[in-house]
C-alpha cells in the first residue's frame, strides 16, 4: 500500500518539475526575445521615428504612414467585425434552433477560424478589391481582416454567453421579460467580460497580419496621410518585413524599433482587455 503511495507521490513530483521546466522555458525564450529587441531597437525610437516618411537612409526613415495605417485598420476592422461577430454569436446561442443546419454552421465557423490567412487575402482581392471596386483601400483591407477575425469573435461570444447560468434567464422570463430584454439586460452584461476579452484578442491578431494585406496590394511606400476609408495605405507588419530583408544594418535596427511599437500596441490592447474584464466581473452581481 505504502509502496504504491510512494510511486504516486514521485509521479506527482516529477510532473510538477516538468510543468515548472516548461513554464520557465517559455518565459526564458520570451525574455531573450524581448531583451534583444529592446537593446537593439529602443535607442532608435525618438519623436522623428514616429513622424517621418519612408526614406532610403535608415536614420531618416520613419513609421508615420504605416502607424496611421495600422490605427485606421484597427478601428475600421473593429467597427465591422464586432457588431457582426457579437450579433451572430447571440443569434446562434440564444435564438437559433439547435437543428442539423445549426450543427453544420457551427462546424463551419470553427473550421473558418483555422483557414490560413493568405486564403482570405486571395478571396478579398477578387471580391472586395475587384468585384466591389473598393481598390487597394483601407476599407478593403479592413473588410479582409474583419472576415479573418469574425470566427474568433463568434466563438468567444458563444462561449461567454454559454457560461451565463440558465437560472438568470428563467428568472427574467418569470418576471415577464421578452427574449430581447433578457438578452440585453441580463445575458450580455453578465457575459461582457468574456466577449470583450475575445474581441480584443481577435483585434490584436488582426493588426499583426501581413500576408492577406500584401495580397490585396497594401502599399509599402506612400506619402499620403490616410484621411478616408477609401485611401490607400501601408501597415506596420509589412514595413517591418521589408526592413528586415534589406541589406543595410540600419534598416534591421529600424525594424526592431518598429517591432517594439507594434508590441506596445498589442500589450496596451491586452492590458485594456484584462482591465475591462476585471472591472465588469466585479460589477456583475445577482
Amino acid at each position: 500500500m505504502s509502496k504504491r503511495f510512494d510511486i504516486n507521490r514521485t509521479k506527482d513530483k516529477l510532473f510538477r518539475y516538468f510543468g515548472v521546466a516548461c513554464t520557465i522555458f517559455g518565459l526564458v525564450m520570451l525574455a531573450i526575445f524581448l531583451i534583444s529587441v529592446l537593446i537593439e531597437g529602443l535607442p532608435r525610437i525618438d519623436w522623428g521615428f514616429f513622424t517621418s516618411l519612408p526614406s532610403r537612409k535608415p536614420e531618416n526613415a520613419g513609421i508615420l504612414i504605416p502607424l496611421l495605417g495600422t490605427t485606421w485598420i484597427m478601428v475600421l476592422t473593429s467597427l465591422i467585425a464586432i457588431p457582426f461577430g457579437v450579433a451572430s454569436g447571440i443569434y446562434l446561442e440564444e435564438y437559433g434552433k439547435k437543428n442539423r443546419l445549426a450543427t453544420i454552421i457551427e462546424i463551419n465557423i470553427t473550421n473558418l477560424a483555422g483557414v490560413p490567412s493568405i486564403i482570405y487575402g486571395l478571396l478579398a482581392l477578387e471580391v472586395f478589391v475587384r468585384l466591389f471596386g473598393l481598390g487597394k483601400s483601407l476599407l478593403a483591407g479592413s473588410l479582409t481582416l474583419a472576415l479573418l477575425i469574425l470566427p474568433i469573435i463568434i466563438v468567444a461570444t458563444r462561449e461567454a454567453i454559454r457560461a451565463v447560468p440558465k437560472t438568470i434567464r428563467e428568472a427574467s422570463y418569470a418576471l415577464g421579460a421578452t427574449k430581447w430584454q433578457t438578452t440585453w439586460h441580463q445575458v450580455l452584461p453578465a457575459s461582457s467580460g468574456g466577449i470583450v476579452t475575445g474581441v480584443i484578442l481577435a483585434i490584436s491578431r488582426a493588426i499583426g497580419e501581413t500576408a492577406p494585406l500584401i495580397v490585396i496590394g497594401a502599399m509599402l511606400y506612400t506619402t499620403t496621410i490616410p484621411t478616408s476609408p477609401m485611401d490607400d495605405f501601408a501597415i506596420l507588419p509589412i514595413q517591418i518585413f521589408n526592413w528586415l530583408s534589406r541589406p543595410q544594418h540600419g534598416f534591421i535596427i529600424n525594424a526592431t524599433a518598429a517591432i517594439i511599437v507594434l508590441l506596445a500596441i498589442t500589450f496596451i490592447l491586452n492590458g485594456i482587455a484584462i482591465y475591462l474584464r476585471n472591472r465588469w466581473q466585479k460589477k456583475v452581481k445577482w
Binding site: 514616429f50 513622424t51 508615420l64 502607424l67 496611421l68 495600422t70 490605427t71 484597427m74 478601428v75 473593429s78 467597427l79 464586432i82 457579437v86 440585453w184 439586460h185 441580463q186 450580455l188 452584461p189 461582457s192 470583450v196 474581441v199 480584443i200 483585434i203 506619402t223 496621410i225 484621411t227 500596441i265 496596451i268 490592447l269 485594456i272 475591462l276 465588469w280 460589477k283 456583475v284
Partner: peptide, 26 residues
C-alpha cells in the same frame, strides 16, 4: 442591472482609438 452593453462596446472602440497617436496633415 443598470448599465448598457452598447456603452461598454463603445468604450472598447474609444480605447482602441486612443492606443495609437494621430498624425498631422501636410
Amino acid at each position: 442591472m443598470q448599465f448598457s452593453f452598447l456603452s461598454a462596446m463603445t468604450s472598447v472602440l474609444v480605447a482602441i482609438l486612443l492606443t495609437a497617436c494621430g498624425g498631422q496633415g501636410s
